[in-house]
Simulated scan of single mutants.
Amino acid sequence: MSQLEKYGKAGHKQLKNGRIRYYGEVKPAKKAGEMVGRRTVREWDPSTGAKRTWHETIDGAGTVRQVRPQEDITGDKKVHFTFDKDGKYTGQW
């Protein structure tokens, strides 16, 4: 229940594989434009206790346009994965 309180203020859903995703509230973008804001997403696997967290940038239609993992395992620069308005992967930066 603590993950729901901390990470799921905007809702959660159970995935078919048993994992649970918690969605944070969308924080408004600092600049006006196509992107309306960013939210934190946390996924938890109750069977193993494994957790992962990422940030999603959302456009005005509610489509995820950018994903950035919170932790970088390699210690390198954090990678942003980008998607077009139809949700198709377009690359990374």
Score class of each variant (00 low, 15 high):
34 E>D: 15
82 T>Y: 10
64 V>Y: 03
47 S>P: 08
2 S>E: 13
5 E>H: 14
54 W>V: 01
5 E>P: 07
3 Q>E: 14
50 A>T: 13
67 V>F: 02
83 F>R: 07
69 P>C: 04
24 G>K: 02
79 V>N: 06
22 Y>R: 06
75 G>M: 01
15 L>F: 03
58 I>E: 10
45 D>I: 03
59 D>V: 05
16 K>F: 00
12 H>R: 13
83 F>Q: 06
75 G>K: 02
86 D>G: 12
77 K>V: 08
33 G>L: 00
56 E>R: 07
75 G>R: 03
20 I>V: 13
54 W>N: 10
73 I>C: 06
55 H>P: 04
71 E>R: 08
20 I>L: 03
57 T>R: 12
6 K>W: 08
78 K>P: 07
90 T>K: 13
24 G>C: 02
33 G>I: 00
28 P>I: 00
28 P>G: 07
51 K>R: 15
75 G>Q: 05
9 K>R: 13
63 T>M: 14
30 K>D: 14
3 Q>G: 11
66 Q>T: 09
89 Y>F: 13
49 G>A: 08
32 A>Y: 07
39 R>L: 05
4 L>E: 15
70 Q>C: 04
55 H>F: 06
88 K>Q: 09
77 K>P: 07
13 K>L: 06
15 L>H: 14
83 F>C: 04
84 D>A: 03
30 K>N: 13
15 L>V: 01
70 Q>T: 11
32 A>N: 13
55 H>A: 10
64 V>C: 05
22 Y>T: 05
90 T>L: 01
81 F>L: 08
65 R>Y: 03
70 Q>R: 14
25 E>G: 11
8 G>I: 02
28 P>L: 01
37 G>P: 00
68 R>E: 08
